[in-house]
Amino acid sequence: MEDVLNLRDTRLTLAGNAGPVEILRGITLSVQRGESLGLIGPSGSGKSSLLMLMGGLERASAGQVTALGQDLTAMNEDQLARFRRGNMGIVFQSFHLIPTMTALENVALPLELAGIEGAFDRAAEELAAVGLAARGGHYPAELSGGEQQRVALARAAAPRPALFLADEPTGNLDAANGAAIMDLLFDLRDRHGATLILVTHAPELAERCDRVIRLADGRIETGITA
């Protein structure tokens, strides 16, 4: 199968009060098209930092990150933003919705920025796909936490990305809403034929992935098939 993401001896070092701090210490990893990959490990192990490197939201200190055949480490910030907009859907623990925009406008925004015709029609389709067809005119403050995360999922899915990156997407939700969000995330992955990379502390969520990678102290500790 085709690799859609490759990291070669990737390292991340950030400045700290007491000097440089090594966050990631030589990560080499390939992810195939259509695969679902779970990233697990204790807090501070580097899971979220690794996801940020994969999405071009953090720049590697050394090594190479290649996504969909493009070298992210060679791109500037504008190029990375354009690449993400067309190829990646990213969902965070915090919903990051724009409070002054309705649910429909939040989902349509990345489509409009990308110059996609029929942005609002597609946004309405994606809201319907996550069960919010009747809530498009509501602002984030008028939605529950579960509904806000559904809007965030619809926004991530609307550009039809090849890669879904999710960082603890159920972390701010109760068990019932969290389970529903995970069902929707995997359904969106299947519907769009995308690759899913999921950071989670929950073993039951990781077990739904095709493969699980455990990180410890900035390194890959084990790679097992779920």
Rank of each mutant, 00 (worst) to 15 (best):
E221T: 03
L165F: 02
P161W: 00
G137M: 03
L188S: 03
R214W: 00
L184R: 04
T100K: 12
V130I: 06
L68F: 15
L153Q: 01
C209L: 02
V4P: 09
C209N: 09
D190G: 15
A152E: 06
G19E: 07
H138I: 07
I98E: 08
I90M: 13
A157G: 02
G146Q: 00
A103W: 05
L127M: 08
G136H: 01
R82F: 05
D167G: 07
E147F: 04
F120M: 10
R208N: 11
L173H: 08
H201E: 00
L12M: 10
S49P: 09
G63A: 06
A202Q: 15
T100G: 06
L205C: 13
R135N: 09
P20D: 00
L14H: 12
T195E: 03
A206V: 07
N17L: 15
D190N: 14
L80C: 07
L104Y: 08
L188F: 12
S30A: 14
G44I: 06
S49I: 00
V91E: 07
L37S: 05
D3H: 15
Y139C: 13
A74W: 00
A158F: 02
G41V: 02
Q93C: 06
A62I: 08
F95I: 06
L196K: 12
L14N: 06
P159T: 01
V4M: 09
D71G: 10
L37T: 01
A194T: 10
R150L: 00
L215V: 11
D9E: 15
E207C: 13
D210L: 07
A134Q: 14
M1H: 14
P140S: 02
L53S: 10
L68W: 12
D78L: 15
S48D: 02
F92Y: 11
T10M: 10
V107N: 02
G19V: 08
A152S: 12
Q64S: 15
A67R: 08
A216G: 12
K47E: 08
G223V: 14
G44Q: 02
M54D: 09
L127T: 04
L51V: 10
L5H: 05
G146Y: 01
L12D: 07
L5D: 07
Q79E: 15
A180I: 04
D187Y: 01
I213D: 03
G118W: 00
